[in-house]
Computed example of a mutant assay.
Amino acid sequence: MIRTLRGWAIVRKPEAARKTRRSRIGCVRASIVATIRRLAACAVVLAGLATPALATTIGVAMVQPTGFTQLLRDGIESYAKSVPGVSVQFTYAPEGAGATQVEQVRQFIAAKVDALLILPVDPQANATITRLAQETDIPLVYANNGPREDWFAGRIAFVLPNDLVAGRLQMRKLAQMLDGKGRIAIIAGHPSHSATALRTRGVKEVAASFPGLSVVAEGAADWDRKKAAALVAGWLATGIALDAIVANNDEMAIGASDAVEAAGLPSDRILIGGVDATPDGLKAMQRKRMAVTVYQDAGLQARRAIDDALKLIRRETVQQYDWVPFELVTDRMSTTHFSK
């Protein structure tokens, strides 16, 4: 019996040890597998942190921001921040500095931005900018200003206001306020911007339809408030009698109002109209220093420009001319509404 028991002990003891070892090995293997899985998961997370997501970059070449173009620039930046994975880079050039803007576009292309957003500074440079985009097959969006042709090959779009309509709206309201009779002066913007010619043309078309209206003075102030004030001060100093001053933008209209005030004339003696409905323009209307302005939606232009650029990047169909509407602003209720 003892031998037999010892025999069992000799036989069964190694078998129990083997089971114990197998159990321990199994536990160790499970622990190693779990550790490997945890390390692999951490590696994936760390890799994701170490490798940033590729951003879509839009290069914006534009005029020096001031007045309405400042609103447009801020709208572009703000909307781009709200779109995941989109960033914008800005460069600036003075009005008329076409060579500078062309070089900025070349630098954007060399940096491999995903799209170009251009607020032109010189119409003579537009053809070169368009050609560069076409040759490199990079999406190009002109905003607020740009060439006006029937069609362009390549991934090109235009987000533009109809400036001819702005001039017509502005002048028609002023003509109504003058009962169709009076002497008017026109202050034009910078000659490099298409809005200057189109808004002025719209003003003159409407004025010509009223036999009692006559244009007695005209000059350019390059969108600038101080230049407009100096221009109007010169007119008043030479004894030119005016019933209305029609300016291509609000900044020049405010300058005209400054000159009228400096001359000691009542604020309602000469009706003054502007375009853009900038915050300063709306304040001038509320203070009765301006009679009319025309609302140009900078935020809408910015959003459409970014959206069109992103669609072109994805090679989606985009309406080549994306027109942005104007809206006449004439009373306190309207100015309060547009100030929001």
Rank of each mutant, 00 (worst) to 15 (best):
A208C: 07
A262R: 15
V246H: 00
A207L: 01
W223L: 00
A220G: 15
D243A: 03
G212P: 04
G212T: 01
A207Q: 03
A228C: 04
E218L: 06
L242C: 09
L213E: 06
W235N: 03
A244N: 04
A262Q: 13
A237F: 08
A237C: 13
S267Y: 12
A207Y: 01
S214C: 14
D224G: 08
V216E: 05
F210E: 01
G212Y: 09
S209W: 00
L236N: 04
S209A: 13
G234E: 02
A263W: 01
S214M: 12
A207E: 10
E261W: 05
D222G: 13
G239T: 07
L265M: 08
S257R: 05
K226G: 15
A230K: 14
E218T: 03
A229H: 06
S209T: 12
L236M: 05
G239Y: 00
E218M: 05
A217T: 02
S267A: 15
A207S: 13
A256P: 15
S257Y: 03
A208T: 13
D250Y: 07
A229K: 08
I245L: 02
A230V: 15
G219A: 05
D250S: 05
A228H: 10
V215Y: 01
P266M: 02
K227H: 13
E218P: 05
I240H: 10
G219P: 09
E205W: 00
E251C: 14
G219Y: 03
A259S: 10
P211E: 05
V232Y: 04
N248T: 14
V260D: 00
N248D: 10
A244C: 04
A217W: 02
P211D: 01
W223A: 00
A208D: 14
M252A: 11
A228P: 10
A221F: 08
A229T: 11
W235P: 12
T238W: 09
P211C: 09
A228R: 11
S214P: 13
S257M: 07
A228F: 06
D222V: 08
G212H: 06
E251S: 15
A220C: 14
V216I: 06
V216T: 11
A228V: 10
K226H: 14
V206I: 02
G212C: 01
I254Q: 05
G264K: 03
A229N: 11
L265Q: 08
A262L: 12
A263E: 06
G234Y: 04
L236Q: 04
S257I: 07
I240D: 03
A237L: 13
W223F: 10
V206C: 01
L231K: 12
K227S: 14
S267D: 11
P266W: 02
W223Y: 10
A217R: 06
D243F: 09
A228N: 06
G219R: 09
E251I: 10
E218S: 09
L265K: 10
A241E: 12
S257N: 11
R225S: 11
I240L: 08
R225I: 11
E218C: 01
G255D: 10
W235S: 02
R225Y: 00
L242F: 01
V206A: 00
I245N: 07
A230Q: 15
N248L: 05
V216C: 04
L231G: 13
A256H: 01
